[in-house]
Design a protein around this nucleic acid. Structure first.
Length: 740
DNA sequence: AGTAAGCCATTTTTT
DNA sequence: ATGGCTTACT
């Protein structure tokens, strides 16, 4: 018997994970063990073996990226796009379901999905009657609490006293109720509602539930360790046929659970066998990504966690022998950046492509030192996971314009743009509209129209608001005739929005205009504006990832699922990693999650991993001595090379000890022991800083303010007269000498 | 209604 | 130290 082509070159465990199609199955897939391959092949196998049609398989992921990749790979296995797939993120699939049955939860099928800005604006309004002291209880916190409740599937009336909080003087539950009521009135949903409402429907409408249970003959779930309670409830409702647990296959790795702080419950994966009686478990432990040393180090580290399902990564590659994992102790964050950069340069000279380097940090503030050094050294880099395309102010504004164009009654969007660009609408004018709208039980747009007619506004404001109203009406009329691309283009032009950015003197204004052009271009990919807006609210993706050869800087969280030849892991110090905040808030549980994060970090590397820790680090304002991370001690000695680390380790116990200096260094201070370095550092660091190039009268460039001329300079900062942004005092380290 | 001064927090992020 | 946000002036 011949093996079908899609099952070729799989190891026995992978094959078991694919061919065990019936009944509940948990696939414990360690890092780099071919998880995505198993998921996609399993899908194809179900189809090719005629167990189900493509629309009878439900496949859920967490990110759009994962969903897209899976779709592509399934298409390539099958040789053609599969029909009517239920493949997407939890949220996009729930949105699809909710549009079908919206009326069961008091919505209509054209409900709108809110972004975070809208949510906050709404909470702000809803909270008014309680006169909450927002200093003491920031609204962000309130939103967080409501979100967490939603993650756990709690509605205002199912929150037990034990679940309630002191937040907002104990009014959180009542505010939640008011917020939900308001959402319903507006016929809108936040992200949490997409899951919450669907679960509500499945629970209260047996006919609907049965319909889906019959439809989905197979269910595939990616990253199961990241599911929260409501997602788990949703899956458990769907994964049942004639009272029996259905063919649900969850893939995940308890060792890579790093999102408990946003509601993920590792318990879900740990409890799988109990939740789904008769479940089988397949472990994928052969790693095809990393060297034996990297795997050994990672395995040794994660072994310190308790309550694991248990899994040991084994090298699966023939060329698995490689370098030891390097641990490097440095003086401070600048030395750390220098050390990393000099190592990158060394490898770069040996033709290692820049795209194969990653610097993985615990928190955003760590990136600064690396950026500075990379700029100085002239190594191209990219910060991954900064602000995403659809989160930029100009994009959100433009989208709000589109929303009002589609639906004049979209008050949240209306409010966002009514005074952008400035039309002389302040809190007073807005208040007037709100009062009018409430009085008439109508939208702000209707209220504005009424006020304009009845002379509620005078002078410049009236004129501008009139024009504002009119350009919507004109383009709305044009929408059908000319199409949405033209209408939106006109709208942004005639409302003065594009002009606002054209007149803006800030150096980032041209970039914003560029983004807006990009957005208008993207409109053409959709046949209607509503379709585009649905895409935007669910698939908040950034523009095409440029495949330039650049060093990637990103957070450990952001790196999950990625891999690089060479990985640098800086900042392994107590308080930074594990982070102090996690230590304080979550204690031992927190340490375990941080350790998993460390495990994720190490296992990103194919060939080389270098871990760094600094003896001193600036926290907010002042310098602090820092202790090497406890995780360093947990790495098994046989897989690591501790350069200059013995010294720092000893320093922790005895500051009068004798230290050894590392021989492996381009830069004297970078990897020497802390105490030796301390004596030299003040001199060296100042020489190293680029302040020497920043002299009075020299022309400089600043990322944010653009070009300018230095009029005054001292050690750390300089007064610069910028061409466009005027005179500012800025940190010298943010300045580069202008080349022209 | 727009600007200056004070106040606070400041990990991680997707949908 | 810094930036973001609210409050208090002009």
């Amino acid at each position: 018997m011949t093996t079908p082509s899609h099952l070729e070159r799989l190891n026995p465990e992978q094959r078991a994970a694919i061919e065990t199609t019936e009944g509940p199955l948990l696939v414990l897939a360690g890092a780099g063990t071919g998880k995505t391959r198993v998921l996609t092949t399993r899908f194809a196998h179900i189809l090719l073996s005629h167990r189900a049609k493509s629309w009878q398989v439900l496949t859920v992921t967490f990110t759009n990226k994962a969903a897209r990749e899976m779709r592509e790979r399934i298409t390539s296995i099958l040789g053609e796009p599969a029909e009517g797939l239920w493949l997407g993120t939890f949220h996009s699939i729930c949105a699809r379901m909710l549009r079908r049955h919206a009326e069961y939860v008091g919505l209509t099928s054209n409900f709108l999905i809110l972004d975070t800005d809208d949510q906050l604006r709404l909470i702000k309004q809803v909270v008014q009657p309680w006169r909450i002291d927002v200093k003491r209880w920031p609204l962000n916190g309130l939103m967080g609490i409501i979100q967490r409740w939603k993650d756990r599937g709690l509605t205002p009336d199912t929150i037990s006293p034990a679940d309630n909080t002191d937040y907002a003087d104990g009014h959180a539950r009542a505010i939640y109720a008011a917020y939900q009521a308001r959402l319903r009135e507006l016929n809108v949903c936040d992200f949490g509602d997409l899951m919450l409402h669907v679960v509500e429907i499945l629970r209260t409408r047996p006919d609907v539930l049965t319909q889906y249970q019959r439809l989905f003959r197979y269910i595939l779930v990616d990253e199961y360790q990241d599911t929260n309670t409501i997602q788990y409830l949703w899956l458990r409702l769907l994964a049942r046929r004639e009272g029996e647990p259905a063919n649900i296959c969850c893939v995940g790795d308890d060792d890579q659970s790093i999102y408990s702080w946003r509601g993920a419950e590792v318990e879900n994966i740990l409890r799988f066998e109990k939740d789904f009686p008769g479940a089988k478990i397949v472990r994928l432990e052969r790693n095809y990504r990393s060297t034996a040393q990297i795997l050994g180090a990672a395995a040794g580290l994660i072994a310190h966690n308790e309550g694991r399902l248990g899994k040991t990564l084994r090298p699966g590659r023939d060329d698995a022998q490689g370098d030891l994992v390097h641990i490097v102790g440095v003086w401070d964050s600048d030395a750390e950046a220098r050390e990393v950069c000099s190592r990158i340069e060394r490898l770069r000279r040996d033709d290692h492509p820049l795209g194969e380097f990653a610097i993985l940090v615990r928190a955003g503030f760590q990136t600064r030192a690396f950026e500075e050094r990379l700029v100085q050294t002239g190594i191209p880099y990219r910060i991954v996971g900064g602000l995403r395309f659809y989160e930029r102010a100009e994009i959100r504004d433009a989208i709000a314009y589109m929303r009002v164009l589609v639906n004049p009654a979209d008050d949240l969007a209306f409010e966002r743009v009514v005074n952008v660009p400035k039309r002389g609408v302040g809190t007073a004018a807005l208040q007037k509209m709100h009062v009018e709208a409430r009085g008439q039980h109508a939208s702000l747009s209707v209220a504005l129209a009424f006020l304009l007619k009845s002379g509620g506004f005078r002078g410049k404001a009236a004129e501008k608001l009139n024009a504002f109203q009119e350009c919507f009406e004109t383009q709305r009329a044009l929408l059908a005739k000319e199409g949405h691309v033209v209408a939106v283009g006109n709208l942004l032009e005639e409302s003065g929005y594009l002009g606002m950015w054209r007149d803006d003197k800030a150096p980032d204004a041209p970039g914003r205009l560029e983004n807006l052009k990009e957005l208008i271009r993207a409109l053409a990919d959709f046949s209607t504006l509503s379709e585009f807006l649905e895409h935007v609210s669910l698939v908040m993706e950034s523009e095409g990832t440029n495949e330039d050869q650049k060093v990637s800087i990103m957070t450990l969280h952001g790196a999950k699922g990625l891999e690089f030849d060479t990985v640098f892991l800086p900042g392994w110090e107590e308080g930074v990693f594990p982070s102090q905040r996690t230590l304080d808030e979550s204690g031992d549980k927190g340490v375990e999650e941080e350790r998993r994060l460390a495990y994720v970090g190490i296992t990103r590397a194919r060939y080389r991993a270098t871990i760094l820790h600094a003896a001193n680090r600036r926290i907010y304002a002042n310098w602090q001595e820092s202790m090497p991370s406890r995780f360093l001690d947990e790495l098994p000695d046989e897989y690591v090379d501790r350069e200059g680390e013995t010294a720092t380790r000893q320093a922790r116990q005895d500051y009068s000890g004798i230290f050894r200096t590392s021989v492996f260094s381009d830069d004297v201070t970078s990897s020497m022991s802390p105490l030796v370095a301390r004596r030299r550092s003040s001199v060296n660091d100042e020489l190293a800083a680029n302040t020497s190039k920043i002299e009075i009268g020299s022309r400089v460039f600043h990322q944010k303010f653009g070009y300018g001329v230095v009029v005054d300079a001292d050690r750390g900062s300089a007064e610069v007269v910028f061409e466009k942004a005027g005179s500012k005092r800025v940190m010298a380290s943010y300045l580069q000498p202008a080349s022209e």
